[in-house]
């Protein structure tokens, strides 16, 4: 009986040790995940603030001051930014990047398909808005590019829902405003929605949109020729899978 009493005491001691071990492991699991959600929220807030700063800076940076963005690009950068030539922006003096972009999008014509981000006002007049945006973004997004992120800038027409405008994105002719090499969707449009489809299940895409109003002249309307297009300028960023 007393032998069993000794055994019982030892058994109780070992059980107590096991219980404390279990509670210790629960505490460690809690500590390992403590603050992770807050940390992620702070990181996202910083990313969003950075993207908002990019959008704000576009309204002030003069196109002539980014004329050297394409100088001495190493081969790996040339692959990311094909046919990038910023030198011709040196002639644009105190015109800001955002103003040039608006000129590019002020194409006359009331149809959605008349508006293109192609570096021209209409079909002939030079308005290198797309090029200015490409050059500016190449420099301003360097911290993100070097940290393994890709970006894409697009202009979105929220009112456009027909088949001619996939996800509302305005058609960008030629090279897109991006540092990504994800293939174009059918070679015609390349929007943040396309990127989201490509990323699939991971879906770690962050986007900031700002209102972007364009004044354009409708020559077909004698009563009220000056009109407004209410677009969105959107930038999306995602960790690279390339």
């Amino acid at each position: 009986m007393v032998k069993k009493r000794g055994q019982a005491a030892l058994y109780d001691g070992i059980m107590f040790l096991l219980l404390t071990g279990l509670s210790t492991s629960v505490v460690f699991v809690f500590i390992s995940s403590y603050g992770n959600a807050q940390e992620q929220a702070l990181r996202n807030a910083h990313f969003l603030n950075y993207l908002e700063s990019v959008m704000k800076a576009m309204y002030y940076v003069d196109a002539s001051n980014i004329a050297h963005a394409s100088d001495s690009m190493p081969p790996q950068e040339q692959a990311l930014y094909p046919n990038l030539n910023c030198r011709n922006l040196g002639n644009w003096g105190m015109v800001s990047v955002a103003e040039l972009l608006k000129k590019d999008l002020a194409d006359p014509g009331s149809s959605t398909s008349d508006v293109k981000l192609d570096g021209k006002f209409g079909n002939d007049a030079l308005a290198p808005g797309k090029n200015a945006m490409r050059c500016a973004m190449k420099e301003i997004m360097k911290p993100f590019s070097y940290s393994g992120y890709k970006y894409l800038v697009e202009v979105v027409d929220p009112a456009c829902t027909g088949p001619s405008c996939t996800a509302g994105a305005i058609y960008t002719a030629g090279e897109k405003i991006t540092n990504s090499q994800i293939p174009n969707n059918g070679g015609a449009l390349f929007s943040c929605d396309d990127v989201l489809s490509h990323l699939g299940e991971s879906k770690k895409l962050m986007a900031v949109s700002t209102p972007f109003r364009i004044l354009w002249v409708d020559n077909a309307d004698a009563n009220k020729p000056t009109k407004i297009r209410n677009y969105l300028l959107r930038i999306c960023v995602w960790p690279t899978t390339e």
Partner: peptide
């Protein structure tokens, strides 16, 4: 009589108890 004594039989159980308390407090 017990194998060691009324208190001596309980001495081995002290070690896991002390270890458990120290582990918990340390955690």
């Amino acid at each position: 009589k017990g194998f060691v004594g009324p208190i001596g039989d309980d001495i081995p159980s002290i070690f896991p108890i002390i270890a458990g308390v120290m582990l918990f407090l340390g955690t």
